[in-house]
Amino acid sequence: MKPILHLPVQDPCAQTTRINSMAATNVAIGVIFLSQTVTGILGNSYLLHYYLLLHFRGCRLRSTDYIQHHLLTANILSLLCNGVPQTMAAFGWKDIFWDIGCKLLSYLHRVGRTVSISSTCFLSVFQVITISPMGSTWSKCKLKAPRYIGSSTYLTWILSLLINIVFPVHITAKSSNTNITSLKEFGYCSSIRHDKASDIFYSVLLTSPDVCFVGLMLWSSSSMVFILYRHKQRMKHIRRSNVSLRSSSETRATKTILLLVSTFVCFYTVSCLIHTHLALFYHPTWFMVYAAAIVSGCFPTVSPFLLMTHDSCESSFCLQWARNRKY
């Protein structure tokens, strides 16, 4: 006589509680994604609209403002292509994107992210050239640098489109026919799983340009801190009334860009650590997946408000001057 096997009986109440807890967690994450996306898009759109308004009112924009135009546009693209689908996935709409939709959204998000990084790098490098004292190595580039801002930013978009073209190859929709055991789930889409060596290779390939830009940011930030320190030491022996308005304006702009770069480096470091975890583990937890998406959207959301802290005073003065000139 065969022994009777007693299978464990699942408690329906415990299972219902677990389902309700997961549903509440998904709703909370969806609210975070929604708040981040809406706040970031509104902040970037407002500042971009304000720059256009100043331009049409007759104000002469600074050279750094043109770089900020591209930064704000890239931020909006990144938030739209990542924040919106992640919000929909958190609220339960996970299988609404076709394979081509997942590839396109992931590709555009990567393009926006790369342009955002490069634009922040250009801001810091250009500001070093702007505030460099006469007689220094970079002082010779002060007159030439503004001429190449437009071509450099547009070249960045072209290179970003080309560099990230390999990224969508490994992205697929969750509803595709690919074997589920060979997929890593990333919210609204999935990534085709490879061996660890291949994952590390593609990670290094895609992050190499970002690492170069971050290195330039760190170098330019260190240079700006050194220049500001020397300027402060010289100003100790000069009366406050003799400090020019341009010098004060450039100092405020430099401090704002330093704050912007510092914020970016902090968020980028955390994002790199999380994405390294996702690349090395075959079955990443849902917490790490959502954390990676939230952290990647932090800088595009925060950056326009950091830029507003410097632009508010000068832009308001310029707008009032243009209005008075009109009348």
Rank of each mutant, 00 (worst) to 15 (best):
S152T: 06
I117A: 09
L273F: 12
H231L: 14
L143Y: 09
F299K: 12
L205T: 03
H170D: 11
T120A: 12
R60N: 10
T87W: 10
Q86I: 00
W286T: 01
W93S: 14
A23I: 04
R240G: 10
T276D: 08
I19V: 12
I4E: 04
L143A: 13
L245R: 01
A14P: 09
N179R: 02
Y188H: 00
C81K: 10
P85F: 14
M1F: 15
M217L: 06
A28C: 14
Q36N: 13
T64Q: 03
S241Y: 10
H283K: 11
I192F: 00
R57D: 04
S45E: 07
S151W: 05
Q10K: 08
S35V: 15
V125Q: 05
D199S: 01
A90M: 09
L306S: 03
S241R: 15
Y188I: 00
K103E: 00
S176K: 10
T207W: 01
T178S: 11
L61T: 00
I149M: 02
S160C: 14
I32M: 12
Y290S: 12
V169Q: 09
P300S: 00
T309G: 10
S312I: 07
G187Y: 06
K184N: 05
S132W: 01
T256F: 02
M224R: 00
N164E: 08
S136C: 13
F126L: 04
I117Q: 03
D199H: 00
F186N: 03
Y327V: 15
Q127H: 10
K232Q: 11
T207F: 02
V169Y: 03
S175H: 13
D210G: 02
K2Y: 05
I171F: 07
A173V: 02
L205D: 01
L245G: 07
S160H: 07
F226D: 15
I96Y: 11
C212Y: 09
F201G: 02
M308F: 15
V243C: 12
C272E: 00
L206E: 03
P168E: 12
A23Q: 06
L307Y: 11
F122M: 04
H310F: 02
S152P: 07
P133N: 04
R252H: 08
K140R: 03
S119I: 01
R325N: 13
Y51R: 12
I158E: 10
W138F: 03
H277Y: 05
D95C: 05
F201D: 08
I29G: 08
Q320G: 11
R113S: 08
